[in-house]
Simulated assay, not measured.
Amino acid sequence: MTVNLKDVKQIFREKQYKLTTQRQLILQTFFDHPGQHLSAEDVFDIVRRDSTEIGLATVYRTLELLSELDFLQKIDFGDGRNRYEINTSNEAHHHHHLICLTCGKVRECDDDLLEALEGSIARKNNFEIVDHHVKFFGYCQECREKREE
């Protein structure tokens, strides 16, 4: 599902949710920061610049709702904070992530070399696989260069 404001408004109406100004601001944050993996605190800091009337609890609730409605992808990178990114994929499989253990920078990796393995696992186990998530942990080029200095 590729997210756009028209679809958001329609689905909110269908589900009988209100698309409040605060919810729109939170969603707009992801449109304004494409490709970034934002935590609730990141979103809160960004939104507070334009709206001092918003609370962190509202951001958390809204992120959960947008994730449940499939407008955002919720990702756990193992650092104790959920991250979110706008759902831009029409495909069942999502990109993979490269996570630096030093600076925490996250890069996306579009290579999906698991198709054959996934098919084999599905056949052997008589199991329909609908998705998978892969995270690679290591050190980015900048952090490796700093360590070598």
Score class of each variant (00 low, 15 high):
141 Q>P: 01
90 N>Y: 11
132 H>M: 11
138 G>I: 09
130 V>D: 11
52 T>F: 08
40 A>M: 01
67 S>G: 08
117 L>R: 02
51 S>Y: 10
101 L>M: 11
68 E>F: 01
33 H>G: 13
3 V>Y: 06
20 T>H: 08
96 H>T: 15
50 D>M: 06
18 K>R: 08
61 R>Y: 01
32 D>H: 05
123 R>Q: 13
131 D>T: 15
84 Y>S: 03
124 K>Q: 12
111 D>E: 15
37 H>Q: 11
13 R>G: 04
126 N>A: 11
48 R>L: 15
70 D>R: 09
68 E>W: 00
137 F>Y: 15
16 Q>L: 05
55 G>W: 05
114 L>M: 12
116 A>C: 10
31 F>Y: 12
3 V>P: 10
118 E>Y: 01
70 D>I: 02
66 L>E: 04
145 E>S: 02
80 G>P: 07
41 E>M: 08
18 K>A: 10
77 F>L: 10
93 H>Q: 15
26 I>V: 10
63 L>R: 02
37 H>T: 10
25 L>M: 09
8 V>M: 00
123 R>K: 13
55 G>A: 12
65 L>I: 04
143 C>E: 02
94 H>V: 14
127 F>H: 10
2 T>G: 08
104 G>A: 03
129 I>V: 14
72 L>S: 02
130 V>Q: 11
68 E>P: 00
115 E>F: 12
147 R>N: 01
133 H>N: 14
122 A>L: 10
3 V>F: 05
46 I>H: 15
138 G>R: 05
98 L>M: 11
56 L>M: 07
102 T>D: 08
76 D>P: 06
24 Q>S: 05
58 T>Q: 13
53 E>G: 14
18 K>E: 09
2 T>Q: 14
121 I>Q: 04
121 I>P: 07
47 V>H: 12
17 Y>F: 12
97 H>M: 11
106 V>L: 03
81 R>Q: 06
95 H>V: 15
123 R>W: 07
50 D>Q: 12
122 A>W: 08
31 F>H: 06
9 K>F: 04
64 E>H: 01
89 S>Q: 13
12 F>H: 07
121 I>R: 00
134 V>M: 13
7 D>G: 08
73 Q>D: 10
65 L>F: 00
88 T>F: 04
40 A>P: 06
5 L>H: 03
24 Q>P: 00
121 I>E: 04
2 T>C: 06
61 R>W: 01
130 V>M: 07
53 E>R: 13
141 Q>H: 06
149 E>S: 02
8 V>H: 00
69 L>Q: 06
41 E>N: 10
20 T>L: 08
26 I>D: 10
8 V>P: 00
26 I>Q: 09
109 C>A: 14
109 C>Q: 14
38 L>R: 13
118 E>S: 13
85 E>Q: 11
74 K>W: 02
97 H>V: 09
122 A>Y: 08
15 K>Q: 13
145 E>C: 00
103 C>E: 03
54 I>A: 14
68 E>M: 01
5 L>A: 05
75 I>P: 05
112 D>I: 15
37 H>N: 10
73 Q>M: 04
78 G>H: 07
91 E>Y: 15
44 F>T: 13
105 K>L: 03
92 A>P: 14
73 Q>H: 07
77 F>M: 03
149 E>D: 04
16 Q>S: 10
26 I>H: 04
79 D>W: 03
144 R>S: 03
99 I>L: 07
88 T>V: 09
23 R>L: 04
121 I>K: 01
